[in-house]
Structure formats: C-alpha cells, structure tokens
Design a protein around this nucleic acid. Structure first.
Length: 341
DNA sequence: ATCATTTGACCTGG
DNA sequence: CCAGGTCAAATGAT
C-alpha cells in the first residue's frame, strides 16, 4: 500500500516538479553568478548590483518553493536531479536553515543582534540545544581521579552533510564559520576515514559547549558528515569572539538568503564578524564548503576562487578584505579579548 | 611563548 | 569486551 501512495505522488507532481527543478537549477546558477561576483568584486563595489542579484535569486527560489509546496507539504527537497546537486542543495539548505533557526533563537534569547549587515552567515548548524550549557561539566579538567566525562548525552545532536572541497585542502573539514579546535581523531569501525573531533576554540574562555565531529563518508569522500553537539554560547557573550566568523560557506550563505522567513530577519541575522580566533588557522581552517562535483566542474572559475580560499593562505584574510569595512573593528576587539584572556 | 594538532592512552556506555 | 569519545603529553607552527 505504501507503494500505491508512492505511485500516485509520482504521477501527479511530475510537471510541477519539473518546473520546480528547472527553477531551482536556474536559481543555482544565479547564485553561482552571485558568488562569483562576491568573490571577485567584493560586495563593497556594487552594492545594488549584488542586491539585485540577491533579489533575482530569491524570487527564483521562492517560485520553486511555491511549486514544490503546492503539490505537497514535504519540506525536504528531494528533487530528482543530478545527485551532486541534490546533495548540495540538501546539505547547504539544511545547514542554512538550522543556522537561521539557531540565530533566531540566540537573537531572541539575547535580545540583541550581532552587528553589521552584509550577508555573512556561516553555515553552522549547531543544534538547538537549550537545556544544557550550564550544567555541562565546566568542560574542564576536573582533576585527575574523577573525570566527570559524559557522553550519550545531554547534548542534542545535529548531523549535516557538507560537501568537501575538491581542490585545495580537501582533507580539511568544511569551515562552518565557527572556530574549532581539534581534540581527537579516531578510526571508526567500518569507515575508511577517521573521524575528527572538534570543540569550540573558545570552550575554555566562554565555557562554550559546542562540539562537532567530522567524518568523511565512505561512499562519497567528497562529502563530510558533520555532527554538531552542544550549542555555541560563546557568541552570545558580548566579548565573545565566536559570532560566526568568516562566511566561508558561501553556498549555505546563499541558501540561507534564498529562504528568508516571513519576518525578514535574515538581513539582520546574517551578520558576521571576522575570523574568530586571532591565531587563526585552526582545525576548521580554510576550508570552504564545496558544491557537488557537477557544479564544480561546470564552473572552473569558482574552483580557482575556491582554490585560493583553500590553499591555506587566506580564508579569513580574503574574507576580511571583502568584509573589511564592517568587521575590522570587531575583529580587533576580539583578538584583543582573546589574548587578554 | 603561545596556541593548535597529533596521537596513544584512558574512560564510559552499550 | 568493544567501540566511540575524551584527555593530555609531545610536537609543530607562528
């Protein structure tokens, strides 16, 4: 009987689905154009050209969404297009949405928005966890004998899949905008690739409980599965550095912008600040989330740009130059704070 | 000197 | 007991 249902669904939505797909594809290419412009011109240069592009992208995706939701109320976009794209859409979309949700929550909890307006937005989908933070073992190092280690877990988990860079440091986990410090790596049974364990760089300073582990998929080495645990509390502190730093995850950034919730909070929410940790180059490193391979293949220029970001020399630097005007101040402030502590 | 990463050992839950 | 998760000393980079 489940089969019958499936059949029905399959038949009807075909046309609309195709429309939706082509809209989505079109949106993607517009988004890539936009990305290209941002990367190459810097958004300072053509503010309203960029804003125009954003509008275009938004409207295309909105139309696609309409079509999708008109035929059924299924949230995830399980479009039958090429696999890479689908994967990309799924991961970036969910990241963006989760980030958005998280930021909304933070904003309402803290009652203030991070400053600066240019769309940054890093795709970090830390879980929604709200209950823990405080009780979480001071994360510290309760001395020798009884380590209050805990697992399985009082922290909610969120798993997302993220495309790995195909050029540059493909080993590096994707940069989700937060700064992470690697604290372990482990071979996982049945996986070809080891799992890396990260925690928030500012864990000690701000008792930020956020953690993640990153694992390359067995069957798709170009995809990371990132599991987030714990919420970032560090960026809620007024002195805390970890307000989502360089928006390296451009894809997610775009996706997030594509789907602004009714309230229109996004333009404000996607503020970013420049790179969290002053001493840079930590685990998350200059990794930029990549698109599916097809996408990448079609856009060698993007790869070049990406290679620049991934080559280890820049990530935040490049982004700083893009966002320089608005973030420099905070950046310095954070660096100072960081060092002070 | 400071901070990040690596890596083997240790701890814990299943 | 085993696998996954974490600690912390050693090492490297800046």
């Amino acid at each position: 009987m489940a089969d019958q249902r499936k059949l029905q669904k399959k038949k009807e939505p075909d046309q609309a689905m195709e429309d939706a797909i082509s809209l989505i594809l079109r949106g993607c290419s517009l988004a890539r154009e936009l990305e290209f412009n941002v990367l190459n011109l810097g958004n300072v240069r053509q503010p309203h050209m960029l804003s125009q592009s954003c509008d275009d992208v938004l409207s295309v995706f909105a139309a696609a969404k309409e079509r999708l939701s008109s035929q059924e109320q299924r949230p995830p976009v399980t479009v039958q297009c090429d696999v890479g794209l689908e994967e990309w859409l799924r991961s970036t979309c969910s990241q963006a949405m989760e980030l958005a949700q998280m930021q909304m929550r933070s904003a309402s909890a803290v009652g203030r928005l991070p400053d600066q307006g240019i769309g940054g937005g890093s795709a970090s989908p830390p879980p929604v966890a709200t209950e823990d933070s405080g009780k979480r073992m001071g994360m510290g190092f309760a001395s020798s004998s009884q380590k209050p280690r805990r697992r399985k877990d009082d922290l909610e988990k969120t798993t997302v899949r993220v495309a790995a860079p195909r050029i540059g440091n493909t080993e590096l986990p994707p940069d989700d905008g937060f700064t992470w410090r690697k604290y372990g790596q482990k071979e996982i049974l049945g996986s070809r690739f080891p799992r890396g364990y990260f925690r928030c760089t500012h864990q000690k300073l701000y008792h930020c409980p956020a953690k993640k582990h990153v694992q390359r998929l067995d069957d798709d080495p170009y995809t990371f599965e990132v599991t987030y645990r714990g919420d970032h509390t560090c960026h809620m502190s007024s002195t805390a550095p970890s307000a989502p730093p360089p928006p390296t995850d451009i894809a997610a950034q775009h996706m997030a912008q594509f789907r602004p919730p009714p309230g229109g909070w996004l333009s404000m929410e996607f503020s970013t600040a420049a790179s969290g940790s002053g001493s840079g180059g930590s685990s998350a490193g200059p990794a930029t989330v990549r698109y599916g391979k097809d996408v990448a293949d079609q856009f060698p220029v993007l790869d070049m740009a990406d290679a620049m970001f991934n080559s280890g020399s820049c990530s935040s630097n490049s982004m700083d130059s893009i966002f320089a005007a608005c973030v420099a101040e905070d950046h310095h402030k954070w660096e100072k704070d960081d060092k002070k502590n």
